[in-house]
Deep mutational scan, measured.
Amino acid sequence: MTEYKLVVVGAGGVGKSALTIQLIQNHFVDEYDPTIEDSYRKQVVIDGETCLLDILDTAGQEEYSAMRDQYMRTGEGFLCVFAINNTKSFEDIHHYREQIKRVKDSEDVPMVLVGNKCDLPSRTVDTKQAQDLARSYGIPFIETSAKTRQGVDDAFYTLVREIRKHKEKMSKDGKKKKKKSKTKCVIM
């Protein structure tokens, strides 16, 4: 069974824990209790493949930012979460993405942009803004509501699919490099 290491990042209060708990335990946590770091595991079937999701729910508070490099190193894919009623959390996505790329030393890291709290009427981040940002990053965008469960499975499952595509691409690139290195030079 394939294991996928997913990391949920975003500013404090955007609903990272609520999304994760909704996926794992099928219930909505409405009281806000700032996370330092929590880890969850769940076995699911995605596109006919049974897999184990190892999900790291991270601290959004700035005082825990020193811990970010460590979990970013171990993560295979990242859910970059903002709240649709919090423009600052949307603007912060850029910083999370840049930090992930720096730590992973790669421009090509599996990510999904997630606009959470889409059940709320007080939207300050337009869907088109988020779609445009995701398009500019070359990553999928999904709106979710941890409260109603809308888009929750889709967000995590899409990230797994992005990781699969990335692994497939990397193995193809690896095979191309191996083929090239088999060419021999004969000096007579």
Rank of each mutant, 00 (worst) to 15 (best):
Y32Q: 02
M111D: 02
H94E: 11
S145W: 04
D153Y: 07
I84N: 15
V160F: 10
E37T: 00
L120H: 11
G15L: 03
E3W: 05
T127K: 05
D30N: 09
I93R: 04
A134M: 07
D47N: 09
E37Q: 01
Y157N: 09
V186I: 14
K165G: 12
R68S: 03
K147N: 02
M170V: 09
D69P: 03
G75C: 04
D69M: 02
G12R: 03
I139Y: 08
E63M: 03
K180T: 15
T183S: 08
C185A: 15
I93W: 15
Y137T: 09
S136F: 07
D119A: 15
H166I: 10
E143R: 03
Y64K: 00
G138Q: 03
E76I: 08
L159W: 03
I187Q: 09
E76M: 07
D132S: 05
D33A: 01
D30G: 09
I46Y: 13
L113N: 06
L79H: 01
I24W: 02
E91K: 03
I84H: 14
Y32V: 02
K172A: 07
Y4F: 11
A146Y: 01
I46N: 13
L6C: 10
S65T: 05
K42W: 06
K88S: 14
E62C: 03
E37D: 01
D132K: 07
K5R: 12
S145A: 15
K175A: 14
D105N: 13
I187S: 13
K175N: 08
I55A: 06
D126W: 07
I84Q: 14
G115E: 09
T144E: 02
D92V: 08
Y137R: 12
D47G: 10
L133W: 13
E37G: 00
K16C: 06
P34V: 02
Q129A: 11
F78A: 00
F141G: 06
H95E: 06
G13H: 14
M188F: 06
H27E: 15
T20G: 03
Q22S: 08
V160Y: 10
A134Y: 10
R41L: 11
C118P: 14
Y96V: 12
S89W: 10
K5V: 03
K175Y: 06
R41T: 11
V9L: 05
V186F: 12
V7S: 09
Y71C: 01
T127W: 05
T87N: 15
S89H: 03
V45M: 14
E91W: 03
K165P: 03
E162L: 06
M67A: 00
Q22P: 01
F90I: 13
D57T: 00
G60N: 00
T20A: 05
K104M: 04
V152E: 12
C185R: 12
Y40I: 01
E107V: 10
D154E: 11
T35N: 00
I21R: 06
F90A: 13
V152F: 11
D69G: 04
V112H: 01
V8Y: 01
R97I: 15
S181A: 09
M188A: 14
L120F: 15
I187C: 15
A83Y: 04
F78C: 01
K42F: 07
K128D: 05
M170D: 10
D105E: 08
S106I: 13
T35E: 00
V44T: 12
S89L: 02
E98Y: 03
A59V: 00
N86L: 02
T127I: 13
A134H: 06
I84T: 14
V152H: 11
G151R: 13
D69F: 02
T87V: 11
G115C: 13
A130V: 11
Y4K: 15
D132A: 05
S89M: 02
C185F: 05
P110S: 03
S122E: 09
E107Q: 10
T58R: 00
A59Q: 00
A11W: 09
G60I: 00
G115Y: 08
E143D: 09
K128F: 08
V14M: 11
V103G: 02
V14A: 11
K180D: 15
D105H: 07
Q99G: 03
V44A: 12
K180A: 14
M111A: 03
V44R: 10
R149N: 07
K179R: 06
L79P: 02
N86K: 12
V8C: 09
R161Y: 04
F156D: 02
K104S: 10
K88M: 05
G77I: 12
T87F: 15
R41S: 11
N26G: 12
L133A: 08
V45H: 10
N26I: 03
R135G: 10
Q99I: 03
A155R: 02
K178D: 14
V109S: 04
G13Q: 12
Q25A: 11
S181L: 14
R149K: 06
Q99Y: 05
I24N: 09
Y40D: 00
R149Q: 14
D126A: 06
S39Y: 01
Y40H: 02
L113D: 02
Q70T: 09
A146S: 06
A83F: 02
F90Y: 11
K165M: 04
T2K: 08
Q25T: 13
E91A: 14
F78V: 01
Y4N: 12
V125R: 08
S65K: 09
F28I: 03
I93K: 01
P110M: 02
C51P: 13
D30S: 13
G48W: 06
N26T: 08
T35G: 00
Q129T: 11
P110K: 03
V14Q: 13
G151I: 08
K42E: 11
C118E: 06
S39F: 02
E62R: 03
I55S: 05
E98T: 04
K104Q: 13
F28Q: 01
K178T: 14
H27D: 15
Q22H: 07
A66W: 04
Q22K: 08
L79D: 05
Y137W: 13
K175F: 09
D154R: 07
H27P: 02
F82L: 11
